[in-house]
Design a protein around this nucleic acid. Structure first.
Lengths: 183, 183
DNA sequence: AGTGGCATGTAAGGCGTTACATGATTTC
DNA sequence: GAAATCATGTAACGCCTTACATGCCACT
């Protein structure tokens, strides 16, 4: 699936593996993160499939950049994947919930400590979605007005992140209260 | 991590791999799912670590059951893991959001079709959390009143599922509206 | 002098899914 | 008669993470 995340990015403009890591971190990492090493491996494999092509751009005092372009076959593969109905729900894993589920024998303070750590982390995420991510999207529309429709969908995924994190926070507060009252 | 999901379950009572699949499907699958084959492999590896022990229970007309018991070392490993502070957030992947992010060039109806399929799937999940899962937890507390505290935490994880799915539904409705108005 | 950014990649190991293999019993 | 349930497991494959390896440049 990372395959299509990268094809989608290269459909906007040619990029190197390093560029793609930064692009994904700033845009889709909320619902599709990837390590650099995995990006390099995936690029290699989709180049072999003929969906992208690379050319080496020499640089002075820095390693050469290997810049990838999407091919017509790549554009087609991307569009086919986008149109293909997705009829399931991705499974998600949450270590905090797993620990909490089995935590009944722990003392009150240990449970509360776990919950409060998470509260701080999720608060930071909410802040990011409400400021940095908003700015990032509006910057793009200013520079590239033809991406107006794209920006609407990008903002939809941003709002998803904001809303799910707000619910996570609210749930943490409720659960902290529950533990304070019952443990 | 599946290791601890299984240890936590076996800390309640001895179970076979097959039993554990059913247990996890009914309780923690919302935040930690696992296939049977992976459960069998994990059981084998944690038995080698000495955290669980198995004994074979013969059956007539059925394959023998291999029933696992948690050992004192297993109880200790579980408790150490539970107490260990969890200081990060699990990354989560969502194919629908990935597709939507790159869908600006698709026609309105194709995007709406994707969103409506998901609406149906998430509606079903909400229903499950609001009826079946509630029943399951209250049945356990009736049969085993000493698990009263456990049930409070189980219900907290159930409410997490219910609330996140409700937000997902609300977001889908908003996004369907967005696409209807702009594409 | 040290940290962080730029830039590419390999290697090892862990985790997870899907398919395969077997076979009786129970339910529709 | 077919499908689901009970019950265990192996094999192949893919994906992902972490660590390793290299080396220059800019900034503090």
């Amino acid at each position: 699936m990372l395959k299509f995340a990268l094809l989608g990015a290269l459909n906007y403009q040619p990029m190197s593996g390093y560029d793609l890591k930064q692009f994904t971190d700033r845009s889709i990492s909320n619902f599709w993160h990837a390590e650099l090493s995995q990006i390099y491996l995936t690029l290699k494999s989709i180049e072999k499939e003929g969906l992208i092509e690379s050319n080496t751009v020499p640089q002075s005092g820095r390693p050469d950049r290997r810049v990838y372009n999407i091919t017509p076959a790549g554009r087609q593969a991307l569009h086919e994947w986008l149109r293909e109905p997705f009829t399931s729900i991705d499974q998600y894993k949450d270590t905090l919930l797993l620990k909490l589920f089995y935590s009944a024998s722990l003392d009150r303070e240990t449970i509360l400590a776990q919950l409060r750590i998470q509260r701080g982390l999720h608060q930071k995420l909410v802040d990011t979605f409400q400021s940095e991510t908003v700015d990032l999207i509006s910057q793009t529309t200013e520079r590239a007005p033809h991406l107006h429709k794209d920006a609407l969908l990008w903002d939809a995924t941003r709002r998803f992140g904001e809303q799910t994190e707000l619910v996570y926070l609210r749930w943490l507060d409720e659960t902290i209260q529950l533990v304070e009252d019952n443990f």
